[in-house]
Amino acid sequence: MAKRDNAADLVGLLSVEGQDLAAAWVREVSASLGSRVGTAELDRELRELYDALVDALQQGATDVHAEQMSEVRALLTELSRNRARQGFSPTETAISVFALKRVLEPVLQEGSGDETRAYLELGRVLDGLGLFTIESYSQTRDEIITAQAEQLLELSTPVVRLWDGVIAVPLVGTLDSARTQVVMEKLLQALVDTGSEQAIIDITGVPAVDTQVAQHLLKTIVAARLMGAECTVSGISPQIAQTIVALGIEFDDIITKASLADALKLALRRSGVDLVAHEGVQR
């Protein structure tokens, strides 16, 4: 029964009489992470992991994907997620696992041939666990990035009510298909929700208008028209105006205004609001 012996050897490495290897492990990791993780928290994390690892090895686990390792994997996933959220690097995360190899190193000098073999075997297991932490770490980071991108999508496209019946979307930054889709939906929904008939799309914050952006704008304007609303595009800078002309895009039947203020004035006039300057007040 070579397998049982093997398991006993691996467990033997980790449970040396009279030595608190888990404590040595915590010290080693703590030294490399500094004060960014509380010692008590680290102690709890690593001791739990240590016990789970010993358990798994006792049950004959030989690599990270073994069924007996499920508890270890769960703990490592949690550890990696926490590190990723706290802004640690992948190296700083994986060190939690690899430091255990360092702690066990003395066995190479003092131990028997069997113990050296067991060390190498355990080393392979730990390498697998280390890679597993990096996997979970990057998975968490990807999730964070996706969530942020979605938030940004929402954040950067507010629809504001400027007046009764007049709404505006100030666009800032690059308009890709995904963002334009969001803008369009929000704008059309806001037209319905507020019962507005005038919409202003302000592109002061858009650095360049290429054929794709133009096409998205045109589609939005047509859709708004179908809903009985009128759109004005404002904030077209001189350089963007010249670029649009050179590209050959026809904005002919679209109302454009140089500034948001001008567009608002127009929208108000169209919805029957008169702006009156009081006598004696300088304009």
Binding site: P207, A208, D210, T211, Q212, P238, T243
Partner: peptide
């Protein structure tokens, strides 16, 4: 110039797409 910058950026955007 600002106009030429915008033209070059826009052309690059078209060709890259």
């Amino acid at each position: 110039s600002l106009v030429d910058q915008t033209k070059m950026i826009t052309a690059a955007s078209e060709l890259a797409r």
